[in-house]
Amino acid sequence: MAAMIKVENLHKYFGKLEVLKGIDEEIDKGEKIVIIGPSGSGKSTFLRCLNLLEVPTKGDVFVEGQRITDPKININAVRQKMGMVFQQFNLFPHLSVMDNITLAPIKIKKIAKPEAQEKAMELLRKVGLTDKAKAYPAQLSGGQKQRIAIARALAMEPDIMLFDEPTSALDPEMVGEVLSVMKDLAQSGMTMIVVTHEMSFAREVGSRLLFMDEGVIAEQGDPKEIFSNPKNERTKTFLKRVLNN
């Protein structure tokens, strides 16, 4: 079976700064990839290259066999299959929770409004926020916002979910509720790629861990294995620093 996502020789420059220095990676259906590494190592940029929020300077990205770095490809169609959750939630403040979730299905998939709303309620049930359907983002806590953001991404019924440090902007007491939604999602079989600083989540939920440093994947493998027995020197230093905190 072809890989769900295939990355070949991916390079990304911001001006003269080389952020990604050649990444080759294959991700299969159902994998829960967790990406850790020091800040500035290129984790987020790598993730954002997967749905072309950042356009790679060099190299190719294939999603379900399609070369999405081909300029002629309809990137909007590709993105509909890849949900994304951001560190800053990015809910649409002018829309109610319900409209946040149903906007894309109604506008893109042309799903009838009642049907889209029914689906949205189902998703709200999953993230435990049915009572917030009529609320506006400004009335929600950070944790609630992020759970809505997850529901919004899921409303497009994506095959892959990308998480860009989903709990980094949250107050500590709200991290748990978001992680628990993500765990449920992982158990449902969703292919997930998660950039995170939550080491216990990485260990528990990740099926494979990528350690990134200075624009390359320095080490990868089974999360439990890496946490207990890191091979790369840089991984060792990094883990020592984060796990001691």
């Binding site: 909007n76 509909q80 994304m84 951001f86 800053q88 990015n90 649409f92 506008k107 497009m156």
Partner: peptide
């Protein structure tokens, strides 16, 4: 905020749809 555009585009909305609806 740029995040608004990114959120819209990441859902698969086109550039003009993101502009008009978000």
């Amino acid at each position: 905020d740029k995040g608004q555009t990114e959120a819209g585009r990441s859902l698969g909305l086109s550039k003009s749809m993101t502009m008009t609806h978000i």
